[in-house]
Design a protein around this nucleic acid. Structure first.
Lengths: 330, 330
DNA sequence: ATGAAAGCGCTAACAA
DNA sequence: TTGTTAGCGCTTTCAT
């Protein structure tokens, strides 16, 4: 049924129907109620394409993971998507899941979406975001660094410092003085914040106990084995990813070192596995659902004429205390 | 830029541009190439809403998880979504992620999507699928039972039997005779197939070793504890969900029972956790990516005037052998 | 407060 | 082979 047919059926003009639907323009409240009621009865729903064509907005946003390999299969990104969806849904925006590749550009240029949320921290991703914003669509990038001063471009940042500092503080306060670090890359906001905070508490993160292990469980096991073999074995270890921490846990078990009695362990990310290992893992949580929700909200605000320059939104990490940490043995 | 402006700019009529874009109707190949080239140069992209309005198709499908709680946060569904996306993308279809609730109906009635993929096995889900198909949209339901003979409605089914039988066969062949089962519901295709196949190998699945444990890790631990306390302890256990199996693994560890040396363990679903526990879990895989891809393909075929009655598509499960199974101790 | 009419940007008959 | 024209279903001035 078209608006014309429907209007005729209930004895008003199409314009009145439109006014009733949107509540804009002058319209008699009584007529409005009547129209709305009869819409239900006759099951009339406006054709969304006609609306979008004339209104020039879509109420759709695209979410793109920039070809990050495991894509949606990875719970990390799945939770992010969930948050984005929540944020959009609250404003009746739809979510278009963009597949990696060039499709995203097509969606934007054909105006299938009003805006885009890009997830990715690489320079190329920031470049892509700029290009999208330049075409007139609104774009929000979720990554590790803030973007400011670019019109139609916003950013949401994972604040890695906070959680790392909390972890450092807790370990220091529990009396740990020889602390190991299992990392992925030497230049890492988590590592520097952790080291800095330890220093503030009079604890030095020694280079020989700082191991760039990798990212997998196996990497973690290997790294932990090295730490356990150190002349002065650490009493606590901070791992940059939970997967590394889980590997470390295994290695400890294999070497007969009890966690947390003999060595404490802190992970990072709070993947679901963290609650499933034994002992359960104390870890730094990245709240991916709020990350997604914030990105969605920022997008919507930019879309509604929000200021081009937003205060950068930072989603702070925080420590989740579980079983894998104990005071340092004397 | 509109088609009219673009057409004028390159000195042809809008109709010619349209023909060039779609390659339909009579058009001089040379003109076509020219138009296509100039589209690139002038960066003209058709407004998708105008296209959809007149073509009466959207090239969009909605994916709805029917409010299954963890939603996208759960890797199981994330992988499914991934498969769906792959299938749709191959035909240039877009994926609209529908949020639980009434939104789906709106997308369908407003013609925002041509079709819907519904994931859910409850009777209410099948009912919802029927209603969608009745409105004129095409619908595919992903669940445990096939639907046939309903126009515009297709189904993809997880073939639970195959994997369950493989598991039974393997355990029987490894010499296991006292086998336990940790289930979720008594009426279950997996349970009956497993029991039946065991019987074929001369092994009885004894009622006292068949425990309806639940679905969580904790449930699994409890169930396993009961099995371990049985007068005649089983030498192998089949768990209906990997979460149950993981719980069983823990319970075994707590009771000092080694897996697989003293008791073998098989799970079901192959969630990512299955590879992360120790020992890694032998389990029945449900290939969720192909499940999603099949659903997408079926949807597209129905959309393209495919037969209302499709042969029901079944995605078979199969056994993944890892470390948690060993021959029965003599 | 309501209706008539002019587009929104595209496709597809129908003419040429 | 190409152009002209009439919609697709809606919103929004501009009249009334």
């Amino acid at each position: 049924m078209t608006i014309k047919q429907f209007a005729r059926a209930i004895g008003v003009s199409p314009a009145t129907v439109s006014r009733a639907i949107h509540g804009r323009g002058r319209i008699n409240p009584a007529t409005r109620q009547m129209v709305l009621r009869r819409m239900e009865e006759l099951d009339y729903t406006p054709n969304i394409h006609a609306q979008r064509l004339v209104e020039r907005r879509t109420s759709m946003a695209a979410l793109d993971f920039r070809g990050i390999p495991p894509l949606l299969g990875d719970p990390y990104f799945a939770e992010l998507a969930h948050g984005v969806q929540e944020g959009l849904q609250a404003h009746n925006y739809g979510l278009l899941l963009s597949s990696p590749g060039e499709a995203l550009g097509r969606w934007v240029r054909s105006r299938a979406v009003d805006g885009v949320i890009l997830v990715g921290g690489e320079p190329a991703d920031y470049q892509a975001a700029r290009e999208i914003a330049a075409t007139g669509a609104v774009c929000v990038i979720v990554g590790h660094q803030a973007v400011e001063g670019v019109p139609k471009l916003g950013s949401v940042v994972v604040g890695l410092e906070a959680g790392a500092r909390q972890a450092a503080r807790m370990l220091a306060e529990q009396g740990h003085r020889r602390i190991g670090f299992l990392g992925t890359r030497p230049e890492d906001a988590v590592l520097s914040a952790f080291r800095d905070e330890l220093a503030k508490h009079g604890v030095e993160l020694r280079p020989e106990l700082t191991v760039m292990a990798g990212r997998t469980i196996e990497d973690g096991a290997l790294g932990m084995t090295r730490l356990l073999a150190a002349p002065e074995r650490p009493t606590a270890v901070f791992a940059r990813r939970d997967t590394l921490a889980v590997g470390a846990l295994r290695a400890a078990a294999r070497h007969g070192v009890r966690v947390p009695e003999e060595i404490s362990l802190v992970g990072h990310d709070d993947i679901s596995l963290a609650q499933l290992v034994e002992p359960t893992l104390t870890t730094v949580r990245v709240d991916r659902t709020s990350l997604g929700r914030s990105a969605a909200e920022l997008l919507l605000s930019l879309l509604n004429g929000g200021e081009p320059v937003q205060p950068p939104r930072v989603i702070a990490t925080d420590l989740v205390v579980r079983e894998s940490v104990a005071p340092a043995a004397r």
